[in-house]
């Protein structure tokens, strides 16, 4: 379950603006988070609070494969990202590190910046508490839920290797 205020962005939010390359040599997630989104929203870092939710349009997270992008978003306090669609590497990266993302074009269109939104991860139901509207995100396939339930890709592989011993 997540609940927070919404920071909303448009289509094709690329990983270069999520975390610019000039900060990719930062040593920790917290250091990356200090610069999250600054090239398109200089006030994001100042205003974001733990639990807040990011909403994007189509092709969210396109461009560079840098895993620093979902790491920076998570470290900034954002609890999950809802988008109309995700670029595939960002999608993999989020699942692999166990960071919740939800694909829901309707929610991405109708939720407004600043709305208070809650998300039930077990059902995929997204509730815009400001407008009263509810949406349902596409469920993950069982295989991907297996990775998420294991705590991410590495614990999943570790468990698999142990089982095969």
């Amino acid at each position: 379950m997540a609940q927070g205020r919404v920071f909303k962005y448009g289509d094709n939010v690329d990983t270069d603006v999520i975390i610019p390359a000039r900060y990719l040599n930062a040593p920790s997630p917290e250091d990356l988070a200090k610069h999250c989104m600054e090239d398109i929203d200089i006030d994001f870092v100042k205003n974001v609070q733990a639990g807040d939710i990011m909403v994007g349009g189509a092709n969210f997270g396109c461009g560079s494969s840098r895993e620093h992008a979902p790491i920076a978003i998570r470290a900034s306090g954002i609890s999950c990202v809802i988008a109309a669609s995700f670029a595939r590497i960002f999608y993999r990266n989020a699942i692999n590190i166990g960071f919740p993302i939800l694909e829901c074009p309707e929610a991405a269109e109708k939720i407004n910046a600043g709305d208070k939104v809650s998300v039930d991860f077990s059902t995929g139901v997204i509730t815009d508490e400001t407008t009263g509207e509810t949406f349902r995100a596409a469920a993950f396939p069982a295989f991907i839920n297996g990775i998420i339930d294991a705590g991410g890709l590495l614990p999943y592989i570790k468990a698999k290797q142990e089982a095969n011993k």
Partner: peptide, 16 residues
């Protein structure tokens, strides 16, 4: 892919 995928690939020689 991302870095976690790379780590998984290095550890297991396979990926999803």
């Amino acid at each position: 892919v991302g870095s976690t995928d790379m780590a998984a690939g290095m550890a297991a020689g396979e990926n999803w």
